[in-house]
Amino acid sequence: MDFPVTFHIFGKTILAHPVFETLGIFIGMRFYFYLKRKSKEKVSFNTSAAVLIGATAGALFGSKLIGNLENPYKLFEHFDFKTFWTNNTIVGGLAFGLIGVELAKKVVGHKESTGDLIVFPLMLAMIIGRIGCFLTGVHEETYGLPTDFIFGMHLGDSYLRHPVALYEIAFLVVLWIVLKIIQRKGKYPSGFVFQLFMLSYFTFRLLLDFIKPRLELIGNLGTIQLVCIGVIIYYIFKIRKTKTVISH
């Protein structure tokens, strides 16, 4: 396979990453609306609209903010709007999407969790998007460090590299199975599956980024890892609080 994989659409050559990213968002949203129609938990239109707007606005802002803060020196010394707009990271999108949802729920006065329904559509979108990351190779910053590990692959340069996009796909597939088993037991309150997803994914990303190129800001931690630590601490307390409620 030659990297990057490209597609010819309407006379233009387009990298696989934006194609699969768009496809992932579309299929993920369709899956979400399908699950929403089947769900026994009915949420008012105002609440649904507020949550969707909050999640979208927060994710859009956060993905670009954290994506650009991966290299803050480059951002502030040579600011370029086109570069700023094209830099994204799912870690920032998830973290700030969560903030957007919580703020939106406060505005409409909704106190119940709304996260469980989005977990599997979100994971599906991420899996599809990561296929695009893998097919783009080293031509976007979604590749791993050079390695002599058994899974090392040529991704478009002269080095064998960790195929971190494939690692993430494998992790998400396993996590999907585990969360489905937990969900089917049905003994946990609404929102618990989403909490487990966030804690698991951000823990995985904290570790995964040690084998990805990064600018070390504090110790040997990059921006994405610092965000991951903040989210992990938040969800450890959330899950402990949930378990306390269950035990009582």
Rank of each mutant, 00 (worst) to 15 (best):
134 F>N: 07
78 H>E: 07
78 H>T: 01
63 S>V: 02
97 G>M: 01
68 N>V: 00
91 V>S: 10
125 A>N: 03
79 F>T: 04
107 V>C: 06
139 H>Y: 15
62 G>A: 09
94 L>V: 12
67 G>K: 11
86 T>F: 12
131 I>K: 02
141 E>V: 11
111 K>V: 13
84 F>N: 05
92 G>K: 01
116 D>E: 13
151 F>R: 00
98 L>P: 01
84 F>Q: 05
99 I>V: 15
72 P>C: 04
82 K>N: 12
104 A>E: 12
148 D>R: 08
79 F>A: 05
127 I>M: 15
115 G>D: 09
133 C>N: 15
64 K>H: 15
74 K>E: 13
84 F>G: 03
97 G>L: 06
67 G>M: 08
83 T>P: 02
79 F>N: 06
135 L>N: 05
148 D>K: 09
150 I>M: 12
95 A>D: 03
92 G>Y: 02
133 C>S: 11
144 G>I: 10
107 V>Q: 03
70 E>M: 13
103 L>D: 10
128 I>N: 10
151 F>P: 00
107 V>S: 03
76 F>T: 07
71 N>S: 11
99 I>Y: 00
113 S>L: 04
124 L>D: 05
122 L>K: 01
137 G>T: 10
118 I>F: 15
93 G>E: 03
114 T>N: 11
77 E>S: 12
73 Y>I: 01
139 H>N: 14
106 K>V: 11
59 A>Q: 02
98 L>R: 07
123 M>L: 15
146 P>K: 02
116 D>T: 13
87 N>R: 13
69 L>V: 01
